[in-house]
Amino acid sequence: MNDMAMIEERPLAAKAPQHAALTEREVQESRRKETILYLDGVSVSFDGFRAINNLSFLLGKGEMRAIIGPNGAGKTTMMDIVTGKTRPDEGEVFFNGTVDLTKHDEPAIATMGIGRKFQKPTVFEGHTVEDNLALALAGSRSILAAIFHRRDAEEEARIAEILDTIRLTHLRDASAANLSHGQKQWLEIGMLLAQDPKVLLVDEPVAGMTDAETEETARLLRDIARDHSVVVVEHDMGFVRDLGVKVTCLHEGSVLSEGSIDNVSSDPKVVEVYLGR
């Protein structure tokens, strides 16, 4: 993928190479079109510290991907870049093959269909579980619409369906502040679903969960992955194995290894920097 940057640096006036470049670029573009998320040559640094270093990452439509890596590998920063919280210093970030995400901010990216769950569960603690979901439901985000909004049967049904999916129906009217840690994680995933996104970015969904809850969450995510593209960041290798999807290992802001869980976990570089011997 790095040669793409090289191609673009070539002067357009040089005719012969331009022809060759076009076909190459067309290949690149057609590859990009097939992806739901496309990151190429992305770098970002904070005060001289390179959090992301020439990172390239592709997520196919409908794919579920797990991302592992040691602390500071750039997992969360990568999500920040995709969701518009952090602007990359260089590199390309495309959504759905065509939308340049570096040109949009968080709300715009969220309404395009990229949902994100934070590392630390953040739900609206002042609201009930139901209201949390109602606020997240897909629909107009304008202020006037919110003021004059009336909830209809369709929305009720959708909320009920999500409550069922995340197994919180019995807590519909409970205050979100009173939920357990695991329930908050699920509620947040439920809010993601309510947004009806095309891609879900899920950051450490099982941190602090019991084994039973972890298992349940894996099942939930697999359910969701049936009709969404999902990126899961997680440290829990057992959980990642449970998901049974392609794994990307990040290290120092770039991809260290990519492939099936068995391939990645036996990669000596991964063992060296992350898993330990």
Binding site: D47, D80, K85
Partner: peptide
């Protein structure tokens, strides 16, 4: 200003 993600 201090920059970086620690600030946010």
């Amino acid at each position: 200003a201090l920059k970086g993600r620690a600030v946010e």
